[in-house]
Nucleic acid binder design. Sequence first.
DNA 1: CTGAAAGCGCTTACAG
DNA 2: CTGAAAGCGCTTACAG
Lengths: 349, 349
Amino acid sequence: MASIKDVAAAAGVSVATVSRVLNAHPSVSADARARVLAAVETLGYRPNAVARSLRTDQTHTLGLVISDVMNPYFTELARSVEEEARALGYSVIIGNADERPDLQDHHVRNLLDRRIDGLLVSPTDGGSPLMLDAVRAGTPMVFVDRWIPGVDVPVVRADGQAAVRDLVAHLHGLGHRRVAIIAGPAATTTGSERVEAFRAALADYGIPLPDAYTGQGDFQAESGRRVMEGFLDLPEPPEAVFAADNLMALGALDAIRARGLRVPRDIALAAFDDIPWFVHTDPPVTAIAQPTGELGRAAVRALVDRIEGRTPKSVTLPARLVVRRSCGEPAPPFPSPTQSPSPVQRSTS
Amino acid sequence: MASIKDVAAAAGVSVATVSRVLNAHPSVSADARARVLAAVETLGYRPNAVARSLRTDQTHTLGLVISDVMNPYFTELARSVEEEARALGYSVIIGNADERPDLQDHHVRNLLDRRIDGLLVSPTDGGSPLMLDAVRAGTPMVFVDRWIPGVDVPVVRADGQAAVRDLVAHLHGLGHRRVAIIAGPAATTTGSERVEAFRAALADYGIPLPDAYTGQGDFQAESGRRVMEGFLDLPEPPEAVFAADNLMALGALDAIRARGLRVPRDIALAAFDDIPWFVHTDPPVTAIAQPTGELGRAAVRALVDRIEGRTPKSVTLPARLVVRRSCGEPAPPFPSPTQSPSPVQRSTS
DNA sequence: CTGAAAGCGCTTACAG
DNA sequence: CTGAAAGCGCTTACAG
């Protein structure tokens, strides 16, 4: 592979001059520039990004460590992150923690070793020593979706409280009183916040959330299945179940179907995180939708601000309830031409 | 951030010795090793992978350029690729082409500039000059899922011919005679092969595949919606539609639902690529399943073989039909305890 | 077993 | 406008 030396030789100039034209430095004669460009062309020269990074101490690369790529929510987040980063001149390297703190550390370490310019993370746990060290060392960092309390890092996330209240109002309006939740890991903010928001909203209606109705999942499908089976084995199973993410809702659906039960006739189901398939499931699933693309873009902007010396602030965007039929309400007879802009949005599916 | 010099100074040895202990070189005294390790520990030193790569001309990184991350098939592929690569000591950087040749080139160029050790690609088109140049220049490369004919690069993919034949037998057995396909881009191998396999299998039953029943999609949901709308507008719409990937099937479902039509009563639907949600859609969708994880792992092994000087061969694994209810057959009354190992597998959903 | 030195491919003050 | 030179952080023959 041709190096800058080859280009310099071919163009009859020094490597310094080649470097200048490559970096659009103004003080290069038109003649030299033309010869360099011609040499670059005929040699098919491409600058070695590794060497450039070593020299400039910049990689123009962002690290994104997410909890689980297989979760459509995070896939979409990753996609929007890459798009915004590309628009701002950065590449992104994704590390998939698969909800495992050890894997998360593996990726953080790998990314740090590669000297990425900044790190976007959706922590799988309460913060490993490695992650905390990275913050302390001054690594530009931004948390997305999940965050670590007590750590001074900007957070870009959705606030689901209002949407959860809307969901509880919806469930209550449909007559559900025995209500359960499949929660995420308590060590994650989204794991604990969603339970707390749900519990608080239920309390407003005088509905308790007993331990038996609080299942501990890990945000992955298998745990949703397991917890739902536990609920169904109860002497008095819940009438409605709220899965704290879409994967656990999938697992819950598997468990319900395996028993030959029907949603919402035998049990109501709602999920945090909306996905395109929820429109087509049997029945369409009522879900809380996050402004995922917005979150990804805002997170990148915050991180790039930080990298480039500005001081980003945390961003919180509202989530919203999308009512479909999985909690018992009949669908509207005809699709309405427009969707309601109110917090409780009725889906046209 | 501490460099190898700082470690050397703290340990009272030369940087050469530090490098040796870091790379497990045998000829280092126990004493020197201990001092270096202690210095590494107290300084929190981590080797700079950028510098190491520049020096060794190896990045221990694989590039993966896929057509569309939002497609669950590719998400799973990416996941298995990363897992196998990690097991073999490599990292992977994913580039999402989003079915756009220009974006694909952007990522290939970016990856090449970063001097990745090898490239895994699922081409979005018939091969850009850039990609062809990379092959010619000797970049270790392996194609996954899709490939470029006439280019001497190992291919790891699934063969769907038998499964497509099984699907056509299934459709024919259910009485469908007017059968249509939503195809992928003709410039991709999977785009053209799936149509050809479908056409050939239909021919065995004397069923034609007229142009009006051959819709041109791009493997993304919106195109599935558009093509399906076209089919439904036909004076004589098809009785059954085969979507060449799961995203176009999603779009097709959207279009069907928007018209107030029902699957399979009004129109039958089948898809290439199986996903977990197909079990829960209304109705469960009959699909052709690829051994996705296997493909990803085999592709990585082939690429690493190539990188490390061995000579990999192409790998072709069979896809299989998973019959559910979207083509009209009633589901079995009870889930069967085991699944049939025959090519035509009956799903228990 | 150990260290001095060269060199990977760049960028960038510095001097002219 | 241009080039020689230093240096980014490593690794690795080479000599001892």
